[in-house]
Each structure stands twice: as structure tokens, then as C-alpha cells.
């Protein structure tokens, strides 16, 4: 069934087509209200706003595809942010900070991975635990907002390369990396494990290792997100906004990734990130007060998942007919 030729939009990851249409619609409305939206400055601004969430949502997508949950992302971003704000001006320098931040993400991912993949604990509860621990560690490292991120990091992340915004390059890199990973042995195993763990185990796939790698990669992505986030805001804040977690899940859900695993992909999530980012810009440009965006966020999230489930139901019925 996997080898079956499918139309190009199907290959983007299940229910991504409505998401693309929604993104185009929102971009259109945004551009109508804000003429500078489609200038090179406007686009690079948009990309810079979206890239943190894109990195985090990529990590989360990989975990969700295996049929698990991961709430620790917001905590890892908080730790990495305060690390960058306290370390980057000192001895480690900007490249050293990047290394340490990624290492921190990797470490949290590996701990989650061990507890969930190897010991078989329930992922939601474990990652709630590690989320709280991470938030605590971030508060211990930097009790109050402050610190400073080295200019080299800020200009390196928010700048251009040959006229192309770095954030845009990262977007493309994420998409390419996933397209490559998806077709590796491990990538195929991720989909199989998410779709049916028992069948995967019986057909000889190593389920724990597949999940382990997924959580570690996710941790790495969160670390990257934390680093880029630090560059965007230029300082440290131990209390990253609560809604970041919701955005991560919303991006994954809007992008058509099934929350029970096995269906979807990173490309869809990147589109989901685009929708969420443009939606906020659009609401702001129209003049909707900021607190209403909370309401929109919650509602779009529920709607996205609801329609995601509906589309899987439709797909199941459509599959049944020819057989």
C-alpha cells in the first residue's frame, strides 16, 4: 500500500491539502491588510517568526508519528534559552553555546527516550514530569528574565545568506532532512510503529530503538528551537509562554499528522506552523485584540484535530469500497 502511487498532494502527508489552501487564504487576507507583507522584508520577518515553532514542531511530529506524546518541548526550549543567555557572552562563545544547547536537548530527549522506549512508561505522564523538571532547571539557571545573547548568534540566525534569510534556509533544510529520513529504514519503521506497534514487533522491527531515536531527535530539534528562540529575543526568559506547547501541538495537528501515530509528516507540520504564524499576523493586521488570538488558537486547534479525524474516517471508508 505504501508503494502505491499517490497524487502529489497526498504524499505531502495525508490531510495537508486543506492546510495549504488555508495558508494561501490567510496569506492573501494578510497581504490585503498589510501591503508590506509580501516584500522581501515582510517575508523574512515572517520566516523569522515561524522558524522557532517550525523546529519544535518538527521534533514533536517525529515523536507523534511513532504513536507517543511529548510535552517536554516547551521545557527544553526554556532551558536552552536561559543557557544561551548566560553562556554565549562568556567562555563557550557562540559556537560552543550552540554545541552545549544541542547537547542539553539531546540529553533531555535521551532521558525521555530511555524512560518511555526502554522502560515502557506512559509518554504523556513522563514528559509532563520532564516538562516540569526542565522549567524548574531553567528557573534555577536564571531566576528572572535577563541575560544577554551574543551578537554573533543574533546576526547569525536572523541574518541573510546570499540574500536569502537564514530562517528560510533552515525551513528548506528541515523539509529536505525529513524527506531523506522518512525513506531510511528508520523512517519507514517510524510509520509502521505508529500505525501498529504489535504488528511491527511481530514482523521484526525493533520498536524500542525506533522510538528511542525519535525522542532523541526530537530533543535535538527542541534544542535547536531554543537556540534560535534565544537569537530572536536576544535575552533569556525562564518562563517561556504557556501557549508555546499548544502551538506545537496545533501545528502538528493542523498539518494533518494523526495524533495516534502512523500518519502525516513533518512537511504538513511546517505548513501548520505557517498557518499559525500567518494567522497571528493576519489577526493583528486586521486589528483584532491580542487576547482574541487566544480564542482563535484554541478553536483552530480543536477544529484541526476534529477535521483530521474526520478525514481519516473518510479515508477508511474510501479504502473499504474497492476491496
Amino acid at each position: 500500500m505504501m508503494a502505491q502511487a499517490s497524487p502529489w498532494y497526498r504524499r505531502l502527508g495525508g490531510g495537508a491539502l486543506p492546510a495549504i489552501l488555508l495558508l494561501i487564504l490567510m496569506l492573501g487576507i494578510y497581504a490585503a491588510y498589510e501591503p508590506s507583507a509580501l516584500t522581501s522584508f515582510g517575508i523574512s520577518n515572517l520566516l523569522n517568526n515561524a522558524i522557532v515553532l517550525a523546529l519544535a514542531a518538527t521534533g514533536l511530529t517525529i515523536v507523534v508519528l511513532t504513536g507517543e506524546f511529548d510535552l517536554s518541548g516547551a521545557g527544553v526550549v526554556a532551558i536552552c534559552n536561559v543557557m544561551a543567555a548566560t553562556l554565549s557572552m562568556g567562555a563557550p562563545g557562540s559556537m560552543g553555546t550552540l554545541g552545549l544547547v544541542l547537547l542539553a536537548g539531546l540529553l533531555v530527549g535521551a532521558i525521555n527516550a530511555y524512560l518511555i522506549a526502554m522502560l515502557g512508561l506512559q509518554s504523556l505522564a513522563v514528559t509532563i514530569g520532564s516538562l516540569i523538571v526542565c522549567q524548574g532547571i531553567a528557573l534555577i539557571i536564571l531566576p528572572a528574565p535577563g541575560g544577554e545573547v551574543a551578537d554573533a548568534i543574533i546576526s547569525g540566525v536572523t541574518g541573510d545568506l546570499l540574500g536569502i534569510p537564514i530562517a528560510g534556509i533552515m525551513f528548506v533544510a528541515l523539509a529536505l532532512a525529513w524527506t531523506f529520513l522518512k525513506n531510511t529504514r528508520w523512517g519507514l519503521a517510524v510509520y509502521a510503529v505508529g500505525a501498529d506497534p504489535v504488528a511491527s514487533r511481530l514482523s521484526g522491527l525493533n520498536v524500542p530503538t525506533t522510538k528511542f531515536i525519535a525522542f532523541v531527535l526530537a530533543g535535538l530539534c527542541y534544542g535547536g528551537a531554543g537556540f534560535v528562540y534565544s537569537a530572536e529575543i536576544g535575552s533569556g526568559d525562564p518562563r517561556i509562554s504557556d501557549s508555546f506547547l499548544l502551538y506545537m501541538f496545533a501545528a502538528v495537528a493542523i498539518g494533518g499528522t494523526s495524533l495516534v501515530g502512523g500518519r502525516g509528516g513533518v512537511l504538513g507540520s511546517l505548513i501548520g506552523v505557517g498557518i499559525l504564524t500567518v494567522m497571528q499576523k493576519m489577526l493583528f493586521a486586521i486589528g483584532v485584540a491580542e487576547f482574541y488570538t487566544n480564542i482563535f488558537n484554541g478553536l483552530i486547534m480543536i477544529a484541526a484535530i476534529f477535521f483530521g479525524q474526520l478525514s481519516s474516517l473518510v479515508a477508511r471508508i474510501a479504502l473499504r469500497r474497492p476491496a
Binding site: 487566544n294 484554541g298 486547534m301 480543536i302
Partner: peptide, 22 residues
């Protein structure tokens, strides 16, 4: 609607926080 509980409650929490703020 068979939504996953933590998504449903997280979303409704955010939504009603927005309503309260408004």
C-alpha cells in the same frame, strides 16, 4: 467528538483564558 483529552482540555483552557481576558 473523540478528541484526545489533553488536546481538548489544553485548547479549551486557552480558549476560555482568551474569553476571560476579553
Amino acid at each position: 467528538a473523540k478528541l484526545p483529552p489533553f488536546i481538548m482540555t489544553l485548547s479549551s483552557g486557552t480558549t476560555f483564558f482568551g474569553v476571560g481576558l476579553a
